[in-house]
Design a protein around this nucleic acid. Sequence first.
RNA 1: GGGCGUUUAGCUCAGCUGGGAGAGCGCUACCCUUACAAGGUAGAUGUCGGGGGUUCGAACCCCUCAACGCCCACCA
Length: 886
Amino acid sequence: MTIELPTTYSSKDTEKKWYKTWESGNYFKPKKGKTNKAYCIIVPPPNVTGKLHAGHALDITTQDSLIRFKRMKGYETLFLPGLDHAGIATQSVVEKMVWEEEKKNRRDFSREEFVKKIWAWKEQYGNTILDQQKAMGASCDWDYLTFTLDPIPNQAVKKIFVDLYNQKLIYQSDYIVHWDPSLQSAVSEAEVEHKDVQGNFFHLKYQIKGSTETLEVATTRPETLFGDTAVAVNPEDERYKHLIGKIAIIPLCNREVPIIGDEHVDLEKGTGCLKVTPGHDFNDFEIGKRHKLPIINILNIDGTLNDHGMEFKGMSCKEARKKVAKKLEELEILIETKSHTHPVGHGERSGVVIEPMISKQWFVNVKEMSARAVTAVEKNETRFFPKEWENTYFSWLRDPKDWCISRQLWWGHQIPVFYCDDCGHQWASEQTDSECKKCKSKKIHQDPDVLDTWFSSGLWPMSTLGWPNEKAMNEKKFETFFPNSVLITGFDIIFFWVARMMMMSLQTQNQVPFKDVYIHAIVRDKLGRKMSKSLGNGIDPFDMIEQYGTDAFRFSLASGAGYNRTINLDPERIGGYRNFINKIWNAYRFIQPHLASGSAHIADLHKLDHHERWIVSELNTTSKSMNESFEIYRYDDACSAVYSFVYDKYCSWFIELSKNILNTENHEAKAQRVSVLKFVFRKILALLHPITPFITEELWANLKETNEDLLIAQDYPEYDSAFEFQDDQDQMNKFIEVITNIRNLRASVNIKPKDEVSVELFTDNQDLINYFRKNIINFQELARVKDLKVGNKELNRPNKSIMNITTHTEIFVPLEGVIDLNEQISRLEKELSKTVTDYKKYEAKINNENFMKNAPENVREEVRVNEAEIREKINSLKENLIQFKS
RNA sequence: GGGCGUUUAGCUCAGCUGGGAGAGCGCUACCCUUACAAGGUAGAUGUCGGGGGUUCGAACCCCUCAACGCCCACCA
């Protein structure tokens, strides 16, 4: 009984169906497999700020392919999903939304009210993200779904905070931080982006107390002079050396400040004379520390000038800069203004200019942790793929700066530090304490700040598996899945995230969090540009799934994922792979009507005929190469191996070669061929399943035995030496070459595809002669050949004919009608000259004593074989040219 | 300024420890051949960025120049 199948595969109908079947059948749950080993990948939790983009789709594709591969290999696999609260990013988008909808900002609400709004946002967008991941086919165990603000991650955050606090590795300090005036929070230096900005160099004249001399100071920020507490010169600078120790008078505010000597000052830059603003410049802050200078904060938290700014109070820095410069000009203190391009820090999230500002913040001393994180990678406890990314990792960790972990936000893990309002005692606690540990006062309050998002993300490999809650750790099988097998992510967060996880895992577990790190490429548009909202060149995974199907989309992403650092994704390419998916569908349509007459297994390998040995041998090679490629994260190689096997071997040749057998009445041969077709196709589905899970599962349902499980639970094909038939592969390649040559000859004289031709083959290889004679029917099928004659080169060649010559066989197509002799001759001469050029390379090598002396034997052997073959071909060409011309 | 990377067919990219230049898409010609026109058959296209060196032999190793990209640092 055969069912009419449509000629195109419809992804829409099948995808939802299978995802549901897998999920409800608990196929995503970890189960002990035949290897008795565990394999775990944790999804880098997407931010709940919005929808998934193409980069996330690549994340899921690479991870899920690996998980499915390992699951089929018999590992106990866990693919663990999650979501990240993404403190700053999420709070900003909600603030923006509230402003647009209600024209209110967050301070118009209580903290509790506002956080409630963010939770509502999280519910909505978090769920969209999960739906998208499911649409991508992610085989996650959703019972493990964790959000960074869930109770256990919160417990983890508190635990490590309190530990580090008690070890004095977390400390509070007045420090100059990157202040984001729009967020009104400190941000970490990693969240600051430097952009070149067109500004000015203002040269100012400073009076020196008790002297008629003046100093010329160059600055890009005259408005900060209200915070100046020194003027610095290089101690080696002959121009200013004598002034060190004297007092300079700052214009406008007339503050008297010391002139100091400091190495930091560059003799070449500006005027060689630097105004020192320890409260609003990172270098100046360091200078200030060295010289114990007072610090003056001239800014409010919104970035406007405070009382120190005198008449400029309340203005933004930008505005004040103009006004101050104008005033200085009027007072003839401004000597000159030079235009100057210089980098200025901008908030990665908010986009506004970051102001260096002094404030009290929490820091982690990462000196020791980062050293351990370096050692672990040096010792290969964690391996990077591709290895070059180690450099990026090292460069960050070898010169670590203390990590500012406090943020003046409302959305996040609140810092577990408490203050007593009565006795001033400060302590850290994992519990929500209600009284002072020291004086028992009930008047206490918790630090209002929250922790940097990466502080909780850094604990992700542990907290998602239940740490530090013992009961949860047992339930989630911490011991089995930690350390994770591989972390897959983009290079942009090696610093932010990978390094932090390494540090925190070594700190809390005394071992690395994952054995491998695979760094995948950044997805860009087809022109190589970053995908961004402003360019409107983003690729929405949902659109691609809708248009081409998930399998095609996954295959495109996987085929672009190797050791490269960018993938320029062109939707047309996805279309190309959609066609490939459809090809598989149609291969099934071809074998489907015959399935009943064969079995799914090969009963006796020895009974296989030549073409059957060839295809199983090719299959074997493909399995080997796919296994190897997956193990080292070469998805691109895995894809091209399976693509060319399915397309170029199975469909183009094996199916074509099977048609005549399927049409014969030879039931035994037919049954065997059907079995091989089925056997190989089943393996193809298994090979492809990790990359294209949906269509393969759909077709498997039609091919499987009734007692067999779903494809997702089948074994992954492996290399097996019993299936290797090298001789058949060699012979088949020659056959393909001859067929192609016949087709080429036909096309060269415009013989209609339907018309039959006679062909005569000449070769001195007796095995080939026998082989060609046995395959007469296939010449008929594949090249419309009638009257195939095969003989050795002693025989006379046909008179009127067109011909091609390979290294092993001369191919003649005798023609009845008129042949353009000159055209044939010129074609042969062209071929001859090309072959001679080729030959000379080998001849030169053989005549080169040094080559024969130095090259390895296998290379010499190859050259000898090629030389002989090509010499043979040249002889054939020459002889036949003589015949043609006579 | 420091570091990393890229440069191979019209486009997007592979090319492993050096040993006869590849794939997909696109393009051209001819075909609606009973799995597939989302298809078939055949075909064209490359000073492997430039220059130098090492080697019997270089797309690959070394030096150098050029163009482009990314990361880090830096508000005088």
